[in-house]
């Protein structure tokens, strides 16, 4: 089984096509939609998790690319500007997937990006500007 965080950018021309459901049926992919900003007649963006067999993962991603969807495979679901972090723990209290935790030895906040489901509840909880949405970052970078 292969698991990936996939950020999909839908140009205007693709918004009205049932691409995700077609892909799910054709390639047997389990899709968890974590965030979606899609409006008819406008571009859209989705943050998702894909789970399926390795071979089908590649085929599914190729299908989306060929359908005009921009596929981003970020290593992380969240941008963490670590140099700004004071290691308080405000993010830890918001994080239900336990991606954030406090190291019991160093008392520092550690982030396990593989557990992050990009719910983004931590972002407004951080008063030091450490956390940034991957969605915002990708949008900013075009």
């Amino acid at each position: 089984m292969s698991h990936r965080t996939v950020v999909l950018s839908f140009p205007r021309t693709t918004v009205d096509q049932p691409l995700i459901s077609t892909m799910v049926r054709r390639f047997n992919v389990e899709v968890s939609i974590i965030q979606a900003h899609i409006t008819p007649d406008e571009a859209g963006r989705m943050v998702t998790h894909f789970s399926c067999e390795e071979e089908e993962m590649e085929q599914a991603l190729d299908f989306l690319r060929q359908s005009g969807v921009e596929v981003n495979l970020p290593l992380k679901n969240l941008v963490r500007h670590e140099q700004l972090c004071v290691h308080c723990g405000a993010c830890v209290g918001q994080c239900r997937s336990r991606a954030f935790s406090v190291d019991p030895v160093t008392a520092e906040v550690v982030f396990d990006h593989t557990r992050c489901i990009a719910c983004e509840l931590c972002i407004p909880a951080c008063g030091f500007g450490v956390l940034e949405s991957i969605h915002d970052r990708l949008a900013e970078e075009g």
Binding site: V86, H87, C88, G89, A90, C91, V92, G93, A107
Partner: peptide, 25 residues
């Protein structure tokens, strides 16, 4: 509190420090 959970009215509650213990250290 530092263990990460406390019990309040029979419910397990996640805790978070708003001050930095590592900075205090």
């Amino acid at each position: 509190l530092r263990s990460g959970t406390i019990t309040v009215q029979g419910k397990e509650v996640r805790t978070a420090s708003l001050s930095s213990y590592s900075k205090a250290r």
